[in-house]
Structure formats: structure tokens, C-alpha cells
Amino acid sequence: MSRSAARTLVLQVFSYLFLIGLAVAILYPLSITVISAFKPGNLIAFRLEWSDQWTLANFARLFAETPYLLWYRNTLVIALATMALQVTVVSLAGYAFSRFRFAGRSQALKFFLLAQMIPTTAAFAAFYVMALLVHGLDQYWFLTLAYVGGGIPMNTWLMKGYFDTVPVSLDEAALLDGASRLRTFWQIVLPLVRPMLAIQALWAFMTPFGEYMLARFLLRSPGALTIAVGLQSFVADPRTQKLALFAAGAILAALPIVVMFFFLQKGFVRGLTAGASRE
């Protein structure tokens, strides 16, 4: 074997070793969680072990003994509301920033760029006082508005970047043909940015599934929690933890998002690079 052929072989072996090792490192903790959800009895710790008895008892207990279904419904309601509102607001704003040169435009864009760095969800004392005043504690609409508002700066930028890739000549042609501004936006331009809309929808939908800090602070009564806050209460105290129930609840929470994620994945890559390459 020649020297270069040997080097190629070594490179290939190490490349595969790395890729397979990384894949194992990803699949191991995830499969541990999945398997634990179907194990009988009280778990003390997650372990990857083949069990002889598979059971759905944990799911039954989850529904019967905990307010999990309520949490699921709460999270879904907030997620859908956040998604609908955020996608609408952000696509309208992104279109305006991309197409028009209006007074205050560049100042607003700079402001958005900096505002996305500020950890606004951490201003919970301020949100709490605001909620007290408008009776927003335990209310989904308050949390939804906080999520949407916090997501606007970054997502408006992404949306604007994607609109920039759609030729302006399309708008001009439609306007010449007598279409109104709103109709041009709705019928001509919006269908062309669908990949980015998909990303926006998914991200907005995922926000309440992942956000813990603000939800924990603003939702007080046990039945009003989101999944993230609720499931955390299962494992917060080692003495009273319900590990198997946590695993079961985690699977049900992750499943719809993972499915949507891979369904929309193709558009993702296009949307992200198109938005980023505008810089």
C-alpha cells in the first residue's frame, strides 16, 4: 500500500470513529430517557438497561395522578397563540423594513439588533408588577404577549433578511397592475417566503415548551403551569422525585416538536443561510 493510500485509510477510519462516537453520545442519553418511561416500579436513576417487562403504567399514572394533561393543554394554547400572533406581526414588520424607506427605519433596526441581546425574560420583577396591575398573573394572554414581544427583535431581522432575497420588481409589477399594498404582500410576496415562515412558526411554537424562568414566575396555581415548569417539579426534590413520570411526560412533550422539526427541516437550511448571507 502506498503512503498516500495509507493516509487516506487512516483519515477515513478516524472520521467514522468520530461520527459514530458522536452519534452514540447523542443517542445514549435520549434513549435512556425514552426507555425509563416504560419501566415498571419506582426508578431511582436513569440507566440504559434492557427490561423484560415493558409497561404503560407510568403514562396512566401521569394522567391520573398529576395535572399533566392540564399542563399540556396550557402549553398548547400558549404555543398556538404565540405562533399565530408572532408570525403575523413579524412578517408584516419584516416586509415593511425590507421594502420601504420610512422615517425611523434605520434607528428601529439598530434598536432591534441591540434589544435582542437584553435578557428581557429576566426582568421578571418588572413583569410581575405589570401583571399585578393588569391582573395578568396566571393568565395565558399575558405570558403570550411577553413571549411574542420578546421574540420580535431577532425574528423581525431574520424575516427582513429573507424578504430582501425576493426581487422588488415583483412588488412593482403587482402595484402597476393595480393591486393594493396589502394584496401585493399577501398574494405575491408572502407565498415566496414560506420556508422562513415555517421556521418562524416552529420557533414561536417551541418558545413556551422551552421557557422556564418567566413561566415559573408568572403562573402560580398548580393547574395553570406549562409543561416545563410542571415537569421540573417532578425532579426538583431528590426525595420526592417521580423519575418515571418525568420521562413519560418528557416523551409526550418532545414528540410533536421533534416530528414538526424534521418535517420542516429542509426549509430551515435555506431560510437560515439566506437570512444570514445578507449581512
Binding site: A96, F102, T120
Partner: peptide, 27 residues
């Protein structure tokens, strides 16, 4: 038109970013 369609974004920003930040500054 542009002001009309960015108005919702501005409003929500005032609610969820500007207002909490200013209140935090005062607090």
C-alpha cells in the same frame, strides 16, 4: 402603509421590551 404594518411590532416591543426595561431601571 409601512408605519401601519410595523405598528403592532412597535406596540408589542413597548410592552415586552421597553416597558420592563424602563421599570427595571427605576426599580
Amino acid at each position: 402603509f409601512p408605519w401601519l404594518v410595523v405598528a403592532p411590532a412597535y406596540l408589542l416591543m413597548v410592552f415586552a421590551v421597553v416597558f420592563p426595561v424602563v421599570v427595571t431601571v427605576f426599580l
